[in-house]
């Protein structure tokens, strides 16, 4: 049963596919960033753009838009961002929390809309919002990521690695030398963070096989640890005298890391680790 039939709503679905056309091209676009088959010339910089829709589906009216957005909240990362946003707000940073909630809502909208488009196109959609078409390609091990960037197949040459590590170290030392929570430190962290997010938005920078769907128990192992860490942090946070004042008796991760981040060298080391994690993520 198609999306139109199930909701019975008013929507415009225009597949724009000539009769008899190969549907593989649409399915390749189905998982957001997308995956491409090796040897079809679709890996690397491509003309179709990242996250091109599988079908032109446009929700009509506010209620339908809200429904589409809410359906995207099923994505775990969206739920995590909303939880972080809530914690940020109750920690006394309402503007930061609002901005994070805004990003989470935009991602929920994007994920929900994509699921709706895939339903409209007749592709089965999993609970995490990805299409079965994409998943089946993942499982055969014949796929790799597509990206707006030329995909490297291995680590960069040693010279480039040395230059990158040197640049990251210099950035860390400079930004670490600034007082914590000062405007110069803020500008530096915002600059690095925004740059990595923008690069990452375009897709991965390194070609690698996407693992197939994990067994439920395997995913539950990491999920349980994440929830345990979050719950323990929340318990410590609620044990503080008030939400904005650290407590020796119930230290949060922020309180425990304060001594390390009190010195310029400690901040530089932490910043270098943070940048390194960002590079690790951008390559995924």
């Amino acid at each position: 049963m198609g999306y139109r039939a199930r909701l019975g709503g008013t929507r415009r679905f225009r597949p724009e596919r000539p009769e008899g056309a190969d549907i593989t091209a649409d399915r390749i676009e189905a998982d957001g960033i997308g995956t491409g088959r090796i040897g079809q010339g679709r890996v690397g910089t491509h003309a179709t753009g990242i996250g091109a829709p599988v079908a032109q589906y446009a929700p009509a009216g506010l209620v339908e838009r809200v429904v589409v957005t809410l359906s995207g909240v099923r994505q775990p990362i969206v739920a995590i961002l909303l939880a972080i946003s809530f914690m940020t707000v109750i920690s006394g940073k309402p503007v930061d929390g609002f901005l994070l909630a805004l990003v989470a809502t935009a991602l929920a909208w994007d994920a929900g809309l994509r699921s709706a488009q895939e339903r409209a196109a007749g592709l089965p959609v999993r609970a995490d919002g990805s299409s079965a078409g994409a998943g089946s390609r993942d499982m055969v091990g014949e796929v790799q990521q597509r990206s707006a960037w030329p995909l490297r197949t291995a680590r960069p040459p040693a010279r480039i690695m040395a230059l990158s590590i040197g640049a990251a170290s210099i950035c860390s030392l400079i930004f670490g030398s600034f007082t914590r929570y000062s405007w110069p430190a803020t500008a530096g962290v915002v600059g690095v963070g925004a740059s990595v997010v923008i690069v990452g938005w375009g897709g991965p920078t390194r070609r690698r096989a996407i693992p197939g769907k994990f067994p439920r128990s395997a995913a539950a192992t990491w999920g349980t640890l994440l929830i345990a860490a979050g719950t323990w942090e929340l318990i410590a946070l609620l044990g503080q005298p008030n939400i904005e004042t650290g407590s020796y008796a119930h230290p949060t991760i922020s309180t425990l890391t304060d001594p390390l981040l009190a010195s310029p060298l400690g901040r530089a080391v932490a910043l270098l680790g943070w940048i390194g994690l960002g590079v690790f993520l951008v390559e995924r």
């Binding site: 994505q75 961002l81 994920a111 963070g193 938005w201 981040l261 943070w274 960002g278 993520l281 995924r284």
Partner: peptide, 26 residues
């Protein structure tokens, strides 16, 4: 790699990473 195969997962994880930096330094 699995989580970040979709645009939502990718951007979400990177935003969460950026938030960590902002939380501790900015």
């Amino acid at each position: 790699t699995r989580i970040m195969r979709t645009r939502t997962g990718r951007v979400g994880v990177l935003v969460a990473w950026a938030w960590v930096g902002l939380h501790f330094f900015a």
